[in-house]
Structures are given as C-alpha cells and as structure tokens.
Nucleic acid binder design. Sequence first.
DNA 1: CCTTCCAGGATTGGATCCAATATTGAATAT
DNA 2: ATATTCAATATTGGATCCAATCCTGGAAGG
Lengths: 220, 220
Amino acid sequence: MSSLEERRRPPTAQQFVLGELRRAITTGRLRPGSPIRQDALAEEFDVSRVPLREALKTLQGEGLVTYQAHRGYFVETLSLDDLREVYRIRELLEEEAVRQAVPRLGAEDLARLDRAQEEVERAAAAGEVQEMAAANRVFHLTLFECSGMPRLVRLIRTLWDSTDAYRSMYYGDGGNRERVVTEHRAVLDALRAGDAGAAVLRLDEHRAHAVAALSTVLDG
Amino acid sequence: MSSLEERRRPPTAQQFVLGELRRAITTGRLRPGSPIRQDALAEEFDVSRVPLREALKTLQGEGLVTYQAHRGYFVETLSLDDLREVYRIRELLEEEAVRQAVPRLGAEDLARLDRAQEEVERAAAAGEVQEMAAANRVFHLTLFECSGMPRLVRLIRTLWDSTDAYRSMYYGDGGNRERVVTEHRAVLDALRAGDAGAAVLRLDEHRAHAVAALSTVLDG
DNA sequence: CCTTCCAGGATTGGATCCAATATTGAATAT
DNA sequence: ATATTCAATATTGGATCCAATCCTGGAAGG
C-alpha cells in the first residue's frame, strides 16, 4: 500500500507542489475565496516559496486561483454554475476537436484508443478510482490529439485540469464507472464507423451525465 | 513624446517583464523555437531571474512559450496555421459569448459599447495604432463580458493575448482601420436589434478579414 | 573511424535573506 | 461614538547565492 501511497515525486519541486495544491484546492482543504498564505504552505510542503509561487502562477493560468499584486493569491470559487460553464465550454471545444479528428483517424489511432479503453475497463472493474480517472483522461485526450489542433487540445486539457477533483468524485460510484465504460464503447463504435456527428452526440451525453451526477452531489 | 515612450511601469517587476517578453516574442526579437536564456534576459530587463520566471510561467499558460524541466523555456512557434487555429477557437468561443450576451444586453451595456466604439473611431482617424488596438479590445471584451460566463471570457482574453502583436500589425494599415470601424458599426446595429445571429455573422466576417490580411503579411 | 565515458562549464531549480507593500489596531481628533 | 492617522506587524516581491541537472567536447577504448 505504501508504494502506492507515496507516488513518485515529480522531478521538480514546483511540479510536486502543483499537484499537491491542486489536490488541496479541489478536495476543499483550501477553501474557496480564502487567501493562500505562502509561508504556511511552503512549510507544510517542505519547499521554499519560490517553487510554490511558480506553481501558483500555473494555477492562476488555469483559473483555480486568482492573483492581486501585493495581496497574493486566493482560491477561486468553483460553484455549480462554474462547473456547468466549464462543461459547456468543453462541449464547444471538444465538438470541434472530434469533428476534426474523425476523418483523420488511422488504424493505429483506433488501436491506441482501444488500448486506452481496455485500461479504463480494467480500472473500472477493479474499482481503482485514481487509475480510472487517469485512463479516462488518456482515452479522451488521445482522441482529441488526432484533431491536429494542438492549441485546441491544450485548452481542453486545461479545462480538464480545472475540474480534476470532481471527476474522481464521479468515479467513486460503481454505477457511474459502469456507465462510463458503456458510453466509451458507444463512442468507439461511432469513431470506427467514421460518424463524427454520432461521436459528438455520444460525448455530449457522456458529459451531461457527469454534470447531472455532480450536480446532485455538489448541491448538498 | 518621452512621456508616452516610457509607459507607466507596472507595479511589480513580473508584470513589467511579462509585457516586455510578450513584445519581444510577438515582434520576433526572440525567435520562435529558440531557448530563453534567463540570465541574459534578466540582465537586459534589469531584474532578477525570479520575476522573469514567474512571467514565463504565465506565458507558458498562454501558450507563448513551452517548458521542459531542467531544460528551460522555449519560444513557441506561431505559424500561420497556429494563427488560424487561434482564430477558429475564438470563433467557437466568441459565438457562445455573443449568443449568451445579446439577450442580456441592457441600456447601459449598449452605452458602454457605444463609448468604446467612439474611442475606436477616434484612434482610427488619428492613426494611433496602439490606442486603437486597446480600444478595440475594450469594445469586444465589453460585449463578451455581458455573457455572464466569466471563465469563457477569461479564455477568450487569453487567446487575444496570444496574438496581440499581430493585431498591432493589422492596425498599421489605414484601410484595415477603416474597415474595422464600419464592421463594428454593423455589429452594434445587430446588437441593438437584439439579433444574435446577425451579430455572430458580422463578428465572423470581422475575424475572417483580419485572418486574411494577416495571412498575406505573414506569408512572406 | 565510431562509440562510450567522463569532466568541466553552462544553465536551470531552489533556499535564504532583505525590501516593498499591505493590513491591522491603537491613539487621536472631531 | 465615529472617523482618521500613523506606527507596528504580517505578507508578498525580488535579489543573491548555492545546488542540481544538463550539455559539450575531448579522451579512452573498441
């Protein structure tokens, strides 16, 4: 267990801190709206303030924190409305990515997607939440990358990052995991058929289910 | 002249360096693909490497530079294809913003847009390129902000930032400045009529003209 | 002649210290 | 009592120095 617990530490302190900060924010340990005290956090993570501040700059770019000169960083509030907004933007961008990707999909692209899906299904069956979130991410981003629009993919990736924690929440439920597996299969069928419209529809449903499930959770 | 030349320096060194870096990159002084030597640049801007690195992190978030751990930052290549990609993404996002904004436009929103447009026309007539770029930005972002989707606006703003220099290039031509003025008026008419579809169309044309003009310039 | 290895230099990553700014709270005046 | 001023404190911003990593070029071995 401990070998999983102590995940491999990234090669730089700023990347390590970046991951820790994401978790702290998305799990709610750093509460929305509250100021980020650099001294305290640096001490907690056992790094100096320099890499911490660089990580905060990254999070600022992703919209997880805000910044005011000489006043510091504050945890951005991620309300249900914000979550819906992120998913709506994803809908717009991912539709474009899929429409561009479908006509370009080659045999090895589909094979890569199949392998990603296998890992999703394995993790889903095993109930491994973190692994499933990671595999799911690989599956979707692999598809988007076939669009040949690197900047678009970058934006989508950032949007995923900004709601990472909520996805883990979603995968905590076994029924949701099952649903993701079947929805992915439907997407794959559409992709194999070269039917971009169908794939877009399936992905829209896929997202809508996630939003609906998270809405009920976040409501309370 | 010198009072305009030495524009007011931002309150922090990182913000100052951020602006300088943007200019250096978008004017091509820092050439695409080339590594960014922190020592040299810090000395040139007369700051230490700390604020420089924070500015680079911001630019990384905007996609103007890439980063590899222990290897540093590199100027991202902004090819014509990239420019087209940015404008395509803007098309998707700005359409959503406008469709959300139009039904919400109040009298004072329209008044603000009118004032912004007045400044655009004044700067256009005076041939003040920088001022016109700034006023144009105010005009569009004022509209987008009426969407009530702050994250969407943030993304759009980032996309604008990443192509800032090219816009200045565009406004250097008097014919382009004239066209922008008339196109803005058409947009305003559509907005006043509450016709979101028409406004979206006008903005799409507006963007297409800019891309076409920049394409011919960047080709050589 | 080509490959591998290693040392030296170049460059980035990070810690510490000091400066600049903002915040707080008490003393003063109205 | 309320508002204002100002000093004390807390916090962020930045400069310098050292450590860690990467890159380069030449020597040793095949």
